[in-house]
Design a protein around this nucleic acid. Structure first.
Lengths: 200, 200, 200, 200
DNA sequence: TATGAATGAGTGTTCATTCAT
DNA sequence: GATGAATGAACACTCATTCAT
């Protein structure tokens, strides 16, 4: 049907766009089929059920995110640079799939027992990955005393929330589409400055 | 039905609880009726449609929020105190209606044309309300240079995201219910410290 | 809608006609709704699910049958008269709901675990109800030696099968509708004579 | 696929097993294909449609049955022996395809116009085949007066019904699988004795 | 001859909404 | 005001069937 036969992949990618880019969090199978340009029944042919498709999408997208994030946090680079990389990746990812975080939030609200599916499954928490480096920086006076948990939550909040709340922010602050985009690009430096006492 | 004639109010309040406190973002009219202890058809008698009821709920809850926030930002108190009050109110509100922000985000994604409904309708933006005071503080060196928009977005992000992402945060950082609650309480000081370079 | 408000009863009766009289053993909810002259959704309004409706129908019809049959077998009448009554009831019931037996058979084939639903739930088996009387008759020479089980199975077979196989019998023996009906009426005496060696 | 080219035959045989032996009367084309170990589309390649396949199965199975039955009824043997042979064949056939009769009954109920398909197509009715011999026996006093039609219906009823109603009978009379099987074996003599006045 | 991919029609079910009372 | 009954539109899902290869 579509181009060269990888219909299954096409459906998955189009569904990701619908769910995570366009924010249609409760898209119907018909909407997914329309987006992919295929018959509705094909979704069941390839994925058996809407729920199974969604689990697959999340599995893929969360695993990819987890791997990227861990690679960044485990890299042998100075702490400030590491955090800068983290922000950059979060914003980049957020621009591609702005509603992914919202989706995860909504799903974990509805099905708290599925939270493991959406989150890092391994023992290594992000807050523990940076704990030592963070404490060293604090001792050096590069930033004020703060626990690793609060530091990570601050970081993630300032990265993700502006993506989640795109429409609200644009409206409240009267931003055009390009102004909002420019605003997001500025945030990398802003977040860094806000987290660290002494700007470069 | 319930007491005398405030049935309309009862439905609204119970619906708010269902939507914004219990997080049943796609509650059916039957679920709303059950929560309010009334017949399903009454919801249409009073509110014409499910959608219209929801618009009303948001109108009310957002207006209340807006009024509280403006009162806080317009009060004649030192800047740092003003921001502290803002955080306190956000966390308090967030504990009462944890799913309100998530609801707004989801709805504005699905119906961007409704964004005005959910947002401050007047001309006075929060960022403008604090602009002068913020710049004065920056000149005093109380905090590093930052635009009012970024400052407000940082503030709102660090307040709201941890409420939105409750289940994710609890899972990722392995927090019990009470540990999470304690964590939230700590955030008032943490956010203040993070926003202002030089802690008192 | 239909006549005087007992829509729920109308649906049940029309469904019985469809299932057990017309023999549409796998009637869809649409067919049931059409038969009853109501909207398809009403079936779920009153009975929640197709399966639940069918369980109700069977419960009703099987309980009624069981009660009638037990009353007949427990009555204080001579054995031959008792069996005559049994046959009469079976043929009468069979004329009203010819496919009930077939339905029970098909359902017990598909869901052997539901067999209890369709059968007599109490301990009193029909074969035990007649055992003593039957043995007395055999001793009297009214009929040749036979176990109660085989006697009952013979009886039920000769009553039910001609109803079940109506269309086959009509075709094989070239019967018109009225000829078939006449044939059924004759069977009461035929079955009695066949079971009892020495006719009165 | 299976061996060489008798795929068509394999499908038919496996379908017979599924429908008439296992009692899956509404088996899907996928189930048929699985049973035969072939691709689902092959069923349409060979048989055009599910319905056409089923018509073929019945054609075959009914023709075979008809031929066996006619050979039995036309054989030059004493009447009682002839009927004994008929019973034996019916029980044997019933043990091989217990759900065939049920299937025929259900299908003729839903599609009365197809009844010819399921029945003997020739003019020679079974009741006519035995008429002369039966009347001779009656004159001899070997059995009480009865029409050929009623005699045949009695015979067929007592043979087929216990097979059809297997699960019901087992439940009502509390029979284990082997007890039921033993019960069926006994029926040959029981039916003969019931039909004929003077047992051998 | 055989198969994976694709589809239209239909299934049971849910739900917001309407209406008569 | 308030309610039980009724309905149309939609939903996820199934299935027989077709088609290109």
């Amino acid at each position: 049907m579509i181009a060269e036969a990888q219909t299954e992949v096409v459906i998955k990618e189009k569904a990701k766009i619908l769910f995570f880019q366009k924010g249609v969090l409760n898209a119907t199978t018909q909407e997914i089929a329309d987006e992919a340009g295929v018959n509705r029944a094909l979704i069941h042919y390839y994925f058996r059920s809407r729920e199974h498709l969604m689990d697959l999408l999340l599995e893929e997208i969360v695993t990819a995110k987890k791997n990227r994030k861990r690679a960044i946090l485990l890299a042998e680079v100075p702490f400030r640079q590491k955090i800068a990389n983290y922000i950059e990746d979060a914003l980049e990812q957020g621009l591609q799939y702005p509603y992914l975080e919202n989706f995860i939030i909504t799903e974990t609200a509805r099905n708290p027992e599925k939270v493991n599916l959406f989150c890092f499954k391994d023992k290594l928490r992000s807050s523990e990955l940076i704990k030592d480096q963070l404490e060293a920086e604090i001792r050096k006076g590069a930033l004020p005393p703060i626990s690793a948990e609060h530091f990570m939550v601050n970081l993630v909040s300032m990265c993700n929330y502006p993506l989640l709340a795109k429409n609200v922010i644009r409206n409240v602050h009267g931003m055009s589409d390009s102004t909002y985009h420019q605003f997001l690009l500025e945030r990398k430096e802003v977040i860094l400055k806000t987290l660290f006492t002494n700007p470069h």
